[in-house]
Amino acid sequence: MSTDFQYAREALGRRLRELRGTTTQRALAAELGWPQAKVSKLETGRQTATPDDLTAWATGAGHPEAAEELHAHVQGLETRTRSWRRQLSAGHRPVQDALTVEYERSAELRAWQGAMVVGMLQTPDYARHIFTGFAALYQSPRDIEAAVRARTRRQDLLYRSGRTFDIIMWEAALHARVCPPDVLSAQLDRLVGAIGLDTVRLGIVPLGAQVAIPPGPGFWLYDDRLAIVEDWHAELWIDDPESTGVYRRVWDSLAESAVYGTGAHRLIARARAQLNLSWASSRIVPDSRRIFANHSAL
């Protein structure tokens, strides 16, 4: 669970405790028909309150006028932390459309990604494998082709003036076998082409580079007004200046360790060479096994 999300639950719990006042947890639980443990968990931020819970609490504590305030608090918490389960209930396409709105609103976009190629630079085939993997993970509707088309259309922004895309990736992302070798090969070609775009500045942090802080989860910064951070359970939409400032400092720190231009080309070429070597080896091994089997049969 994200630190921001947990802090928000704990802040709500403190407010619930204030509203309870001198009434004991046991007495409030009896009034609401709840186990006392539920009252305790809500007050300590160990359980997320539903809108019905908050209405009941405000009424049971004798402060029905506070229900609207409590609902606003939870709505803000849910807006900041967008669980994948909820977001993907209608498939991946709506998520892509929501992101496109933020891209179109922004002039300066910065990204960090350590595990895979960023979506704005993905080929359709590469994106198809990414969406397929996540659809299986989250057991979401498999609108793969619609999601691929939405992501590909968003890439048109790369060719329009008025925006800059400052993208940093870890070298590991070039080697991650999240797709077949031929798809990854074409994806590496795509990265080479992206380096030549005047709207894109692509940096790659070498695996052996000295870094001031450990590379963490992938995130995008939109004009420093919004950070969208990817976690396994949720996407975090963070818009308070203090927190977005942290992500900007993280991005600046990683950018200092990145190589650009010729250096980035060299790392992509190294990834391609390793891919070709392993691909060739995988095609030779079955033939060797077949020959060995044939000799064994003699």
Rank of each mutant, 00 (worst) to 15 (best):
I168V: 15
T50Y: 05
V211Q: 05
I168Y: 05
A297V: 08
L236T: 03
I168L: 15
L99S: 05
L121C: 06
G162N: 06
V250G: 00
A66M: 11
L202G: 02
R153H: 14
G45M: 10
V205F: 07
R225S: 15
V183R: 02
A58R: 07
T3P: 00
R20S: 02
I204D: 02
Y103G: 02
M120T: 12
T262N: 12
T244K: 06
R153V: 11
V101A: 12
L109I: 14
G193E: 15
T123V: 04
A186W: 07
D287L: 15
W279H: 13
F134Y: 14
S83T: 15
Q187T: 02
R93T: 12
A146E: 15
K41T: 06
Y138P: 10
A273D: 13
P241L: 06
Q87T: 11
V205N: 06
A280M: 10
A234N: 12
T164A: 09
S243W: 00
S83F: 15
G133K: 02
W279C: 02
T199Q: 07
F165Q: 04
L19M: 01
W251M: 02
A49T: 00
A150Y: 05
R80E: 14
D156R: 14
T50E: 10
T81S: 14
G196S: 13
I268D: 04
D231L: 15
V250T: 08
A172T: 06
L109C: 05
R85N: 11
Q139E: 15
F165E: 04
R266V: 08
A264G: 09
C179L: 04
R82N: 01
L197T: 01
L88Q: 02
D189H: 13
G245A: 03
D198E: 15
M120Y: 00
M169Y: 00
L19K: 03
V211L: 04
A58E: 08
Y260Q: 06
T22A: 12
